[in-house]
Write a protein that binds this DNA or RNA. Structure first.
Lengths: 231, 231
DNA sequence: TCTCGTATGATTGTATACAATTATACGAGA
DNA sequence: TCTCGTATAATTGTATACAATCATACGAGA
């Protein structure tokens, strides 16, 4: 594990606040709440069986993630995530994943390199066997390794944030073996570029990898099925 | 104002939580606390004359910003910001400001364009007069306009976050008239590229603008004077 | 002397009570 | 009927009380 554990993993799951935070984020991202809908502390608290305190703390975090807007002494209103937001995130991620790959080329450790190789090798196996669940897991892990390997706390933080943000959408996009297989092949190319100490190539490949992931998502129509808003 | 007011402006200044949040962020960024130093809720509360509740909520926000790390049932520890972090932020910002300029070229409104022109014109005046304070203010505003003009909630959010993050450092870098003047000239070039509907040029100029800002900061030695950590 | 377990204190997690603010409803006056 | 002001209710902001967890100190036993 990297020295910088992303927030969700360290302070969550075992606290009420963390559970509330994740539940609300999931609900907002999955479209349970209407845009501009008001979230009331007591209502959420009762629904989840907790008091207002953890709910309030979760609200503060959601606000910082841009998922809700808190107007002092008034209320909390969901901001939601639109199709355009997702598109924008993928373009931004494309740039940052490229930078990450570039920096990883310079800073990756022997251990990280070995885990990447193992990851790609294993993924190839699961792709052939049609193991979607494992494939998705390995895909996540590949990116996490690269985030850690880039040796930049700031960049790692940003990318993990975005990754979380689009996780639900992304999960569905990998739900086809063909994309999963293609994705893993792209991972392999990025890995080779890093091995060859070719930062330009690594950056470009990582750029393309994100764009491909997005375009596949749009093409496959899985994304539209997920979001049902009118734009 | 844009449709998406950044969090700090909406829910702060008038709440204890907001004040605590800003105070702690300022203290952490300015190096008041040692790295890995523990922040205790009651101590902070007493120091600022508030109860634990607003302190806790501020902690949750600081954690999400990556400035502190909260270990459940243990404590909150400052993460701080190193020279490397600042360098990374500027590189990341360089990419994102470039993307922002590109998108602004496509989406800027007539009103935003006019405000940009006015901004550059005014800044030229204040640069000649040596008005540092106004120059810094206009510089901030120029970037804010561009963030709004790019018409991407996500990108605007990210860039405003980073902007806040390095604000203290940046303020000092503009504290020389020569850089302020050069910076404004670069703004003018970006503005011209946007006016000419030349996204490639706008992107490249915005990239360079950030890199220049960072290099000037390093060269001038203002940054080293600010941070006193051993790396 | 060392180790381990227990007890005590400190600190955070959560719930609740109270204060402040905002929204709404209702009625008086024009 | 309309407007405005007041009263009331609802909601958030803050403080505090209590519960749970963790760290430390101390002493019993080997």
């Amino acid at each position: 594990m990297g020295s910088y554990d992303v927030k969700q993993e360290v302070s969550d799951k075992y606290s009420l606040r963390g559970r509330v935070f994740h539940k609300l984020r999931e609900d907002i991202l999955s479209g349970k709440y209407e845009e501009h809908e008001e979230l009331k502390e007591v209502a959420i608290g009762e629904e989840l069986g907790v008091s207002r305190t953890p709910v309030r703390e979760a609200f503060r975090q959601l606000e910082l993630e841009g998922l809700i807007q808190i107007i002092p002494n008034k209320g909390a209103y969901v901001t939601g995530i639109t199709e355009n937001d997702v598109k924008d995130i993928y373009v931004i991620r494309s740039l940052l994943e490229g930078l990450c790959a570039r920096w990883a080329t310079e800073h990756i450790t022997k251990e990280q390199m070995e885990e990447m190789e193992e990851n790609v090798y294993l993924a190839k196996f699961h792709a052939e066997k049609g193991h979607l669940e494992q494939l998705a897991e390995l895909d996540n892990r590949f990116h996490d390794i690269m985030y850690e390997a880039c040796h930049s706390k700031m960049l790692e933080h940003q990318l993990k944030d975005f990754h979380q943000y689009v996780l639900r959408v992304r999960k569905k996009t990998l739900a086809t073996i063909s994309r999963g297989s293609a994705s893993n092949h792209e991972h392999e190319l990025i890995l080779d570029a890093i091995k060859d100490k070719n930062p330009d190539m690594a950056e470009k490949l990582a750029n393309d990898h994100m764009i491909n992931a997005y375009q596949n998502m749009v093409k496959s129509g899985l994304y539209e099925a997920y979001h049902t808003e009118k734009e």
